[in-house]
Amino acid sequence: MATGGRRGAAAAPLLVAVAALLLGAAGHLYPGEVCPGMDIRNNLTRLHELENCSVIEGHLQILLMFKTRPEDFRDLSFPKLIMITDYLLLFRVYGLESLKDLFPNLTVIRGSRLFFNYALVIFEMVHLKELGLYNLMNITRGSVRIEKNNELCYLATIDWSRILDSVEDNYIVLNKDDNEECGDICPGTAKGKTNCPATVINGQFVERCWTHSHCQKVCPTICKSHGCTAEGLCCHSECLGNCSQPDDPTKCVACRNFYLDGRCVETCPPPYYHFQDWRCVNFSFCQDLHHKCKNSRRQGCHQYVIHNNKCIPECPSGYTMNSSNLLCTPCLGPCPKVCHLLEGEKTIDSVTSAQELRGCTVINGSLIINIRGGNNLAAELEANLGLIEEISGYLKIRRSYALVSLSFFRKLRLIRGETLEIGNYSFYALDNQNLRQLWDWSKHNLTITQGKLFFHYNPKLCLSEIHKMEEVSGTKGRQERNDIALKTNGDQASCENELLKFSYIRTSFDKI
């Protein structure tokens, strides 16, 4: 039985969820670079991206490699990797027998973001014989899940209580170790020597080791999670996991709180800001991140802002960003909400898709409305799209047979046209069989910064309504002859009103 693990408890099935942008060198404390989270699957090609990484700022997932063999891993080693800020997950990587050479110096898994409450997941690794993470000293947050690894031993010899604050939620089941077939031998045991430290858990006094050649490092209890030197002297209180010299914040392997210019500090002093819960960055760093993602459509890219001495992905609820200094300031009234469309555009074809934009005031991208039916549609669209004030790209209304009016965009005031449909149009209306009105132009103002209007096959939309939009939106004169079809717009509506004058002759039985 794995020490510190839980057996036999019912657990939810383990679901495996399925960018080499360097964020800056980590400095003297770390020998390499800070790398983003990685999802490495199918083959070993991307694994080489770990070569210079000291910190993975995010998670590391290595999974679904069915053609790899043990010899493929023999020359692979990433000794610079010290810390993973989120979680480490391995799933069905064939041929991998140990992690001792792959990650010989991995010391800390912070667990800032977890995989279903777990910071370390080893699942269905069919050839893994031992973990071998002999320098792993601290899992700051989260638990361990090690399950269905039929060859995995050296679990009962690990004292997880020396690595985690609590072992109650560890789930370590259905491994070879369960069948008591392992016969784990710690260093020196074969020669009758006791080389590794022994600890007591559940009444068992057991030597602690990761492999037959690597003991588990056990520091004096007084050192807590700070770690200790090879001689057993406690590291500085700002260290986490390990250090090369005692009581020196510049000799830590990793930091308990924050890293700044080669030393570990309790908090980031001005003019620095907390970033990702582990390091200090200056304003320029946060500003660069903001600008890199301002026009990016890459998933996970955030326009970072500053709030409460932190550089964070977005302002919290009730705050909006001051564009001059990136500071989050309290909103006066309802907060603006910028919604970034991942692929640059979004099609609204149902109430469900409209709900995804609920509360958005600025759309960074283009909207395509293609709704053919739905219950209580006008009210639903207004509830979900009615706060949109600005669209950076274009607005396209296409084959939306259920629409009679666009009044559900009740606050839309600006279409920038930074991206144009077919390279020309910022407003595009095609084949809307029941569209009769755009907006009530006596109450609604709309500016279209650039781009043209396109109207074709809107049989109940009168040309007068379209011409009014040209005047109000500032697009009059931009359109070419064929942009607004004269014969297919309003051709099934009563669009022309003329005053009919009647004269009559009164007659009676005795007068003409």
Rank of each mutant, 00 (worst) to 15 (best):
E147D: 12
C153L: 02
T229M: 13
I139D: 01
Y171H: 15
R69V: 14
N175L: 09
C268W: 00
A119K: 00
G142V: 01
E231W: 05
A198Q: 03
T250K: 03
N179H: 09
S98R: 03
P36T: 02
P246F: 13
K193F: 02
P31F: 09
F73K: 04
S323A: 07
G192C: 11
D101E: 12
R263C: 02
L332E: 15
N170Q: 12
N202L: 04
D288N: 14
F258A: 11
P336S: 11
I163Q: 02
L155R: 06
T250R: 07
N42H: 05
V34G: 03
P197W: 05
V93S: 02
S225A: 03
D86G: 07
N175P: 09
L64W: 01
C331V: 03
F285A: 08
G142L: 01
E180S: 08
P336N: 09
N105K: 12
R141C: 03
D39W: 04
S284E: 03
P336G: 04
L128Q: 04
R263D: 03
L106F: 02
G192I: 03
H48E: 11
R297Q: 14
Q287E: 04
D184M: 15
T140K: 11
N170G: 06
A156W: 07
D177S: 02
C255I: 00
E266K: 00
G241F: 02
D86T: 01
H290P: 06
E49M: 06
I62P: 00
Y154L: 06
N202Y: 08
I146F: 04
P334W: 14
C239M: 00
D86A: 03
G241I: 01
E130F: 11
C328I: 02
D39C: 11
C264L: 00
H28S: 07
L152R: 00
N138L: 12
H212C: 03
E33P: 14
G183H: 13
I158M: 07
H48K: 02
T229V: 07
P36M: 15
L260W: 05
R162H: 11
L44T: 11
K294V: 09
S98M: 02
T267S: 11
S161F: 11
V55W: 02
H290R: 09
N242P: 09
E124R: 05
I306W: 15
K217S: 13
S296R: 10
C255V: 00
L128W: 01
N135Y: 02
C182Q: 05
P334L: 12
L128T: 03
I306F: 14
L106S: 00
E124V: 03
N175W: 09
P36S: 13
Y87C: 00
G95R: 05
N150I: 12
N135C: 05
Y304L: 05
L99R: 00
T199Q: 09
I146T: 01
G262P: 07
S54A: 10
N257T: 07
S323E: 13
E180R: 12
C264Q: 01
G95M: 08
F123P: 00
G232Q: 08
D72C: 08
G32L: 14
R74W: 04
R141T: 01
S324L: 11
Y118M: 09
A230L: 12
S296H: 13
L155N: 04
P187T: 13
S324D: 12
E238L: 05
Y94I: 14
N117P: 06
I158K: 03
M65L: 05
Q287N: 06
C331G: 03
L260P: 02
